[in-house]
Amino acid sequence: MSHSTATPAVQAGQFDFLVKGEHHVANGTLLGFWLYLMSDCLIFAALFATYGVLSQNYAGGPSGADLFDLPLVALNTSFLLFSSITYGFAMLQMQQRKLKGTMIWLAITGVFGAGFLGLELYEFYHLLHQGAGPQRSAFLSAFFTLVGTHGLHVCIGIIWLVTLLFQLRKHGLTTANRRRLFCLSMFWHFLDVVWIGVFTIVYLMGSLS
C-alpha cells in the first residue's frame, strides 16, 4: 500500500527535479530580496540614529529652519508618491500580461524618479552654493549622508528600471522578467517608505527647530 504510493512520487520527483528547481529558486528570490531590503533598512536605521544625535550640532552654522525649502520638499515628496502609484499600475498591467502597458507605466515611474532626483540635486547644489556643504557642521554632514544615501538608492533604482525596460522590450514578460519586476517593485516602494522617515524627521522636524 505504502509502496505503491511512494514509488511514483519519487519517480516524479526525480523527473521534475530540474523544472521544479527553477520554481523554487524563483520563490527564494523574493524572500532573499526582502531580506536584503531589511538589511538596507538597518543601514538607514544607523544613518537616522546618526542624524538624530547630530541634528542640533550646528557649529554656529545654519540650521534646518534656515536652509530647508518646504514647498520644494513637498513637490519632491509628491513625485516619489506618484512614482509609487504608477509602479503599482505597471504591476497591475503585468498581472494582465500587457507588455506595452507595463512598459509605459514603468517609463512614467522612471520619469517621476528622475524628477525627484533632479530636484534633490538642485537642492544639494543650492546648499553647496550657500556654503552649507557637508563640511560646514556635524548637522550638515549627517544630513548629506542620510539624504544622499537615499538619493543614491533612487539613482540605482532608476538604472535598474531602465535596464528592465530594455529587458522587457527584448524578451517580453517572461518568468524571469516578472520576478525582476517584483523585486524592483519592492525596492521602489521600500525607498518611498524610507522617504516618509526622511521628510518627517529631517525636513519637517528640522524646519520646526
Binding site: L92, Q95, R178
Partner: peptide
Amino acid sequence: EEEGPHSSFSGYM
C-alpha cells in the same frame, strides 16, 4: 506560477 502577491487596483488607489 505567479510569484509574489496578487495586487488590485482598488488596493493601490
